[in-house]
Nucleic acid binder design. Structure first.
Lengths: 253, 253
DNA sequence: ACGCCCACTTGACCTAAGTCAAGTGCCCCG
DNA sequence: CGGGGCACTTGACTTAGGTCAAGTGGGCGT
């Protein structure tokens, strides 16, 4: 058993090679020999518990983090002190990409439930990338993907009504869980209504009312944090700009 | 006799080396020898005219583009066909970063006024970056910066009222113009009220009313597309969550 | 096991901003 | 140089969603 000098997680055989997330995460598409090199710079910590920070805003940027299990939220505090949630991160997703530019974290990252993460010291990662073109490419892709997602979020916030925002959010979770081998139709929300609202630019009461409405409409079953998607198709239709107005006779008003 | 003091297009020796934007653009921080190598892969086109496309959504991604003069908007068309503006790009700014991931453009880019751009074939850029660590780093930084800006936009859209959005927008333009050597206090908007509204998630009427209000308040002078910032300090205060109501003894004005 | 707290729900009301509808005048085109 | 369209302004009205307030009940700590 090789003793990793920095942080040793005693007995678990953690390695990118046999990590189930390898196909989603940084190693995606790398030759096995290159994965080994990547492997060599990854630090793994003991599991973090709800409320622990991966990093905090204003602190020096040293590493990217990849979620291995659990979930993490990123957020900033507005001038008035209240929290603006910027994103929720599931296994296989990278955090800290916005800090490369400034060398300082621009948001804080806090785990929402017991989670484990991999730490990727960025200087070493860059060094490695300059020797492994595939890794360089993969990093460019990951950064680009993040930009695309942010752009989608901008579009969602600037033109969609509350209903569509929540439906988008749920579908995004559904798809991401599915890609990770979990159920697309049933999952536990690790974040509060407040946090969902902040993320979607809505009041928590609005989020709550929408959950109720979706349930009444038979689209979801909602039990506290336990969500069951009953009608995926209809949920998708909510997003597709439900311009049913003139379509079907909606009945007498 | 063209009296354009800034740039005359036909006869300039166009080269990153003597481009006034070099310190903002990709070459930033590169050794002169490396700038030459970068130079070698840059394609420069004749000036584009208002309405011309740099690229269109769904088209194959081949190159990044850097604005040299003029301005460019990026946008997508919603399912209902109406335009969602994603950004406005000034000289020295890069476009197409979101397409690296998918190999396909996710938005369209159209010039708002007569503009010139540099085209950077991405494959060659990547190849170059793997030999020039500084360039690789610079690319990571640029992508990261974009992520940070998108994040700022998400925060703006999800929690700021209309007033703050427009003030943010104007201050962003002001700062960007200033860094490019133009006046921070006086500039011409190259985009319509409609486009500003789309970008900020507001109706064009709201944008118009806010311009009027800012003018009435003595913060701006607005003449059609000609904006003069009369009171930069107060414009900043609009953003700073103008909760002047109860705030600590700021003293009566 | 109990009770308290806090996340959530639900209702009533209010407001910021959207929509609809006229203007107004600049700018471009003939 | 004159007409027309289009970008913009302005006003009246509507509404989605925020705010405030009052429950309700699940889960956690003792």
């Amino acid at each position: 058993m090789t003793a990793t000098p920095v942080v040793s997680l005693s007995n678990i055989k953690v390695a990118c090679q046999n990590c189930s997330l390898a196909s989603l995460c940084l190693p995606m598409g790398l030759a096995p020999a290159d994965v080994d090199k990547l492997e060599a710079i990854v630090k793994r910590s003991r599991p973090l518990r709800r409320g622990d920070h991966l990093f905090e805003s204003e602190h020096k940027f040293r590493s990217l983090f990849a979620v291995k299990t659990g979930s993490v939220k990123t957020y900033t505090l507005g001038p008035d002190g209240n929290e603006q949630v910027l994103g929720f991160h599931l296994p296989g997703e990278l955090l800290g990409l916005d800090a490369i530019q400034s060398d300082v974290h621009r948001c804080s990252a806090r785990v929402l439930e017991t989670s484990s993460v991999c730490e990727l010291p960025f200087e070493r990662l860059e060094e490695l990338a300059s020797h492994i073109p595939t890794l360089q490419h993969q990093l460019f892709r990951l950064l680009s993907k993040e930009i695309g997602q942010d752009t989608d979020m901008v579009a969602l916030l600037s033109r969609s009504p509350a209903e569509e925002r929540l439906a988008s959010f749920l579908l995004s979770l559904s798809e991401r869980y599915q890609r990770r081998g979990f159920s697309a139709k049933e999952f536990i929300l690790s974040m509060s209504r407040q946090e969902i609202g902040s993320y979607l630019g809505l009041a928590l009461e609005t989020v709550s009312r929408l959950f109720t409405r979706f349930q009444e409409d038979g689209i979801l079953r909602v039990d506290r944090k336990h969500i069951t998607i009953l009608d995926l198709e209809r949920l998708r239709k909510v997003i597709a700009h439900q311009t049913n107005c003139d379509q079907q006779a909606q009945g007498p008003n």
